[in-house]
């Protein structure tokens, strides 16, 4: 694995969240979901910088959604995991599985 096709810890968390949320993955929703699961406050800024990096790697795509009054007239940006991102995420999960093999029993 070269540096460009490996994923960091937070990148893995964000990609897994995108997979879980499907069509509804945008900044706030991603942040809330991650906070609920790992019990740690995650800034929207950290999520967007990670998504920008993942987009540059070809792991996610984004598109603008509807602008609403609740958002001060600003549009949501929806993110989706690409086939490349999906493959890389599975590859990372597999690598983690091998690292923890015999140490941790997954529920």
């Amino acid at each position: 694995m070269t540096k460009s096709n490996t994923l960091g810890e937070f990148e893995i968390i964000v990609l897994a969240t995108l997979m879980r949320l499907g069509e509804e993955a945008y900044g706030n929703r991603i942040s809330t979901d991650i906070e609920g699961r790992i019990g740690r406050m995650v800034s929207v800024g950290a999520i967007y910088t990670t998504l920008t990096r993942l987009e540059a790697k070809g792991c996610v795509t984004s598109k603008l959604g509807e602008a609403t009054a609740e958002r001060g007239g600003r549009a949501k940006r929806y993110f989706r995991i690409t086939a490349q991102g999906d493959a890389l995420l599975r590859q990372s999960a597999e690598a983690f599985g091998q690292v923890f093999d015999g140490i941790i029993t997954w529920p």
Binding site: Y26, G27, N28, S31, V44, G45, Y48, T52, A67, T68, E70, R71, G72, R74, A75, K76, R77
Partner: peptide, 19 residues
């Protein structure tokens, strides 16, 4: 501080949660 194209999305997310 934020790039213009990103600022709109982040501001929107903040606005939504803030309200």
């Amino acid at each position: 501080i934020l790039p213009h194209e990103m600022a709109q999305c982040v501001l929107g997310d903040f606005e939504e949660a803030y309200r």
